[in-house]
């Protein structure tokens, strides 16, 4: 009896030590898999918005992801719906469609057809219109808009400016 309770105590003591060690090592393992500080620090890109031609889709790069930049034509602006207008970003008096160029389904890059003025994702057949809204599932939502901040004619991707915050608050993007 005396011995067994002593063994019981030893067992519990070992369990406590091992438990602390297990939790500690899990924390270390989780943290070791986190993106490195250097990866996070490289996450800002500045775009000069005066260089884009109207009606042509240009693909930029931010955090390794493609960023679609489409300067809207007068025709597009005239014909757009309220929800399409709400997704517009205005820099230096011009209206742009800015979006992360990854299908919101599973992240393939949809291709843009200038004649159809729409995007088709080859992976699972999802489609988006020129404003970035879904016209055919499976994508669950319109293109995501990257966090941006407008400074004069420049746009800084990765920083959150008031225009982006407003879009986020109204649920236009995630």
């Amino acid at each position: 009896m005396h011995n067994s309770s002593r063994r019981g105590f030893m067992g519990k003591a070992f369990g406590a030590v091992a438990g602390v060690g297990a939790v500690g090592s899990l924390v270390a393992m989780k943290k070791s898999w986190d993106p490195l500080p250097s990866v996070k620090a490289a996450g800002f890109t500045t775009l000069d918005m005066t260089i884009y031609p109207e009606g042509e889709l240009i693909t930029e790069k931010w955090r390794g992801k493609p960023i679609f930049v489409l300067k809207k034509t007068a025709e597009m602006i005239a014909s757009q719906t309220e929800s399409q207008k709400a997704r517009s970003v205005i820099v230096g008096g011009s209206e742009f469609m800015i979006a992360i160029g990854l299908c919101t389904h599973l992240g393939c890059i949809p291709s843009y057809s200038a004649t159809e003025k729409s995007f088709l994702c080859a992976c699972h057949g999802g489609m988006f219109n020129w404003a970035g809204e879904v016209t055919k599932v499976p994508p669950p939502r319109a293109f995501d808009i990257p966090p941006f901040k407008i400074e004069g004619n420049n746009m800084i991707l990765g920083e959150v400016g008031p225009e982006f915050q407003a879009m986020k608050d109204s649920g236009i993007t995630l």
């Binding site: 898999w33 599973l106 992240g107 669950p140 995630l174």
Partner: peptide, 29 residues
Amino acid sequence: WAGMVITNIFSLGGLHMDGLVEWIRGDYV
């Protein structure tokens, strides 16, 4: 692209667990 698509599955759709996807990748992509 298989890596991109399969790791994106871990965002679990409507749950938007992008942090988990970035953790698995150790990067944004």
